[in-house]
């Protein structure tokens, strides 16, 4: 590699400049993950006895499997809510003037940069027994006793959807901005209604953005440790907390490593499904 000065290609820099970060990643990112994998292939904490015991334990234990299942399901639910709510924001963004555009972007951006603990804390205030929802419903006389909203699947999904919304909306705004507005008009003037145009023209053309947004939202939602544990409470266990309990409280590092690897593989599987869809959709969008 290394830049050959003789070539004098002034517009590019040598690959050597990437060496420090590559080395840093090798030492502190790749090596730890390899060690994690190595330990997960051992049946004892000291790492002396090779075996698939940790994986067998996970894959034959109904409890572990249900934790994995509910985590993957949670990601799907959050992603769906984000898509349904995020798409109209991106759509609205393309229809308003530059001033409103900046306001919309800043509204979308703020939560992304606000501390996740703060955002989650807000949902405790909203969903709690004395929170806004319960207080409003009670003062309107709709309910007598406070509803249980915190520590429920519904609460976790709504809170996570709000927390991860920017990750869905930003790629959608980018994707919709790349669609030629004439196509929209052409479809309408050819007699297709607005709904039909949306589902047949706008949505398919924005698929790369949809897929990028879904990948980021899904990956973030299933690993959102803080929101899951604070809004979900003690009764709902998802993979990150399961991993943390095994590693920290029980000090069972080999099993925690196996959980990590299974979790990593699950995320990678979902990401590669999305990426494949993305590649297919680009072909579709270009057609």
């Amino acid at each position: 590699m290394g830049a050959a000065p003789a070539s004098r290609d002034v517009t590019s820099y040598g690959m050597g400049l990437a060496a420090p970060l590559a080395l840093f990643f090798l030492l502190f990112f790749v090596a730890p993950l390899l060690q994690l994998f190595w330990l997960s292939l051992h049946n004892d904490t000291a790492g002396l006895h090779w075996g698939l015991g940790q994986y067998l334990h996970f894959l034959t234990d109904p409890f572990s499997l249900s934790v994995l299942g509910s985590t993957l399901l949670l990601g799907a639910e959050v992603t769906a809510v984000c898509l349904v709510l995020g798409f109209p924001i991106a759509w609205l963004y393309q229809r308003v003037g530059p001033r409103l555009q900046t306001i919309i972007i800043l509204i979308v951006l703020l939560p992304l940069l606000t501390s996740v603990v703060v955002r989650t804390f807000a949902w405790i205030v909203i969903l709690g027994r004395q929170g806004i929802i319960n207080a409003t419903l009670q003062s309107l006389g709709i309910i007598d006793t406070p509803l249980k909203l915190l520590y429920t699947q519904f609460g976790v999904v709504i809170a996570l959807a709000q927390v991860q919304m920017p990750l869905m909306t930003l790629p959608l705004i980018t994707a919709l901005g790349r669609i030629d507005p004439n196509l929209d008009d052409a479809s309408c003037s050819l007699g297709a209604g607005s709904w039909r145009t949306f589902f047949r023209v706008v949505l398919p053309l924005s698929l790369p953005g949809v897929i990028a947004g879904c990948t980021l939202t899904y990956a973030a939602a299933i690993t959102a440790f803080i929101t899951q544990s604070l809004v979900g409470g003690g009764q709902m266990l998802f993979m990150p907390m399961y991993l943390y309990q095994q590693a920290s409280t029980l000090q069972n590092w080999p099993f925690a490593s196996a959980i990590s690897i299974i979790f990593l593989l699950a995320v990678l599987a979902v990401v590669s499904v999305f990426t494949t869809l993305g590649r297919l959709s680009r072909g579709y969008g270009g057609a």
Partner: peptide
């Protein structure tokens, strides 16, 4: 780019072990 999508908690544990 991979740290953006991989579960950071798994990386945290891996780093601690290393």
């Amino acid at each position: 780019m991979s740290p953006l999508v991989l579960p950071a908690l798994a990386f945290g544990l891996a780093a601690l072990m290393l």
